[in-house]
Design a protein around this nucleic acid. Structure first.
Lengths: 149, 149
DNA sequence: CATATTGGTTCGAGAATCTGTCTTTCGTCA
DNA sequence: TGACGAAAGACAGATTCTCGAACCAATATG
């Protein structure tokens, strides 16, 4: 969003930023307080993209919009901290699947709770009806702003 | 947003992330193509917060949620590249105001055009009515997610 | 006027990121 | 089926981003 400076009418992208950042901060705070205090923001952004059956480092990199090397670097740290594990990809001997490990699942559980709490606060502020509209609009916006949904 | 992994129902914070990132990427791309290819994402995120009459480094740091040191570091780079200038704060001899310089204003102009284009695409996708709802909902959400509006 | 607070910078270290290069494996097609 | 380009992943080196600590100057407070 290169430049904005003025306070007049923030563009829709910038308006999306504030809730996103607030949610992220709340979740990171809760994780730290729950003992998951070694995970960093960069690590969690990669972690988030791991699918149920595991995901390749290359795919994680692509979805998180970072280089393969950076993704490898962050997955290394997540693995050392016990949040994920790497298993061979049965369908491709070159590839390895990054999968959520026990400690990772525990972190997910904490995150889910906080996410629900924050979302409840937002729904309370907006009203159920408008919050529903918001979710639907954002979901539709995702169709054209997220190639990897 | 520590963890999410599943594809089921992304939380509202994550849903906000996709449009935000898409807008940011489009603006950065346009800036680079217009010759503003030396500005980085981190720099632009600080730059965005500069107000019309200039803003103190401390305030930029607070709003961008980074340390004073990081803000100083990034403003140094922006200043060296000609995007901003530092002027004494007439109301406080300790402070200096970071102000947008000529090259910065040129960048803002480019950014504004792209932002409007992207927003127009989004409005086309959502329909004018729902886009209006979206903007209003996000603006109200900002009330509780952005302490520095 | 002594002291605490605030705005800002410098220093040093650690985290995150990229480009380039290399190896192994896969897929394709001649 | 075998050769070759492409893909998955890792390693190396450099740059950028970030923070905590220490510091100075100016302000505010008692």
């Amino acid at each position: 969003m290169g430049e904005e400076s003025a306070r007049e009418q923030p563009n829709l992208g910038l308006l999306c930023f504030f809730p996103y950042r607030a949610m992220e901060a709340r979740v990171m705070k809760a994780l730290a307080e729950a003992g998951f205090d070694d995970i960093t923001l960069a690590q969690s952004r990669v972690f988030q993209r791991i699918g149920r059956e595991g995901t390749r480092v290359t795919d994680l990199a692509e979805q998180a919009r970072i280089s393969k090397q950076t993704a490898t670097f962050l997955v290394d740290q997540l693995e050392r901290a016990g949040y994920v594990e790497r298993v061979p990809d049965p369908t491709d001997a070159r590839a390895r699947l990054v999968r959520i490990a026990a400690r990772g699942h525990a972190g997910v559980a904490v995150a889910r709770v906080v996410e629900a709490e924050v979302e409840a606060e937002w729904i309370r502020h907006l009203g159920k009806r408008d919050a529903g509209h918001l979710r639907r609009a954002l979901t539709r916006l995702r169709e054209i702003t997220d190639p990897y949904q």
